[in-house]
Amino acid sequence: MIKLENINKTFRVAKRQGGFARAVKALFSREYEIIHALNNVSFTINDGEMVGYIGPNGAGKSTTIKIMCGILTPDNGICEIDGRTPWLERVAHVQHIGVVFGQRSQLWWDVPVVDSFELIKDIYKVDSSLYQTNLDELTELLDLSELLKTPTRSLSLGQRMRCEIAASLLHSPKILFLDEPTIGLDAVSKIAVRQFIKKINAERKTTVILTTHDMQDIEALTERILLIGKGKILLDGNLAELKKHSSERKTLIVEYTGKAPTISEGMTVSEAKDGRLIIVLDPTQLSVSEAISQLAAQSDLIDVSVTGVSSEEMVAALYEEYSI
């Protein structure tokens, strides 16, 4: 179980100033700016959960991840992961976590993937039988059999990401941190990687915490979402709640024959032509199905299409709402 309570973290950043005179002055006395990277961050994640951690760049995502991994020490607050404080018991703690940094490889560039795996086995002191079981299982799960003998430099980005994920699971960690696992991948590889992450969570019961900018990752993968902005947790809930939270309007495009329907409360007509209406619907007043049945009761409908705001637009709207 992961428990964070009132974690605070501030950084002192030297102010960069333009101009030669100022730069010279800065050599002797620097001015600093205090940045609150994390502000009373608290949340709990249970074993086996899959959580999407989202927020714009600089919101504090990677600071939180680094604290949970034991790379950074917070100013104050409690962080307990399976009963350990990461930065106090670094070695014991990291034995039980796996970390994938999307843009950095842990595989050796010039040697076959399996050699990197063997080295990781020794680094984590995984005993041989467990290693073999894990390797077999992961090879099957992630479809690696073709890739193991290939040097990393000859793998495609998608293939490499699968190997990276496998590499961070060889020591059977209870928690897996994925930092932007689908960044830079093509559409097909993205889908594949998502499926693998899902399978791992389901079959190995590994707790997965994933940061991403790709809302499709979130939609495909996670039940639970943590939204962080300016160092604060803004929202802790599921995708549906997130959607409810955002003032989301739907657009109905209706084609009909005969008499135009009358519009009830909750709907506004934004465009009306012969036999065609474009209606904006506020789902908090009227649900989509109710609106359609009302319309159908009055006119002969030929075609109805409903478009919503995409998750991305939704999150963008949310960022705006919280002005982050």
Binding site: C69, G70, V91, A92, V94, F101, Q106
Partner: peptide, 9 residues
């Protein structure tokens, strides 16, 4: 950072 998330000195 990678070194820090591995259980070795």
């Amino acid at each position: 950072d990678r070194a820090l998330v591995r259980p070795r000195s």
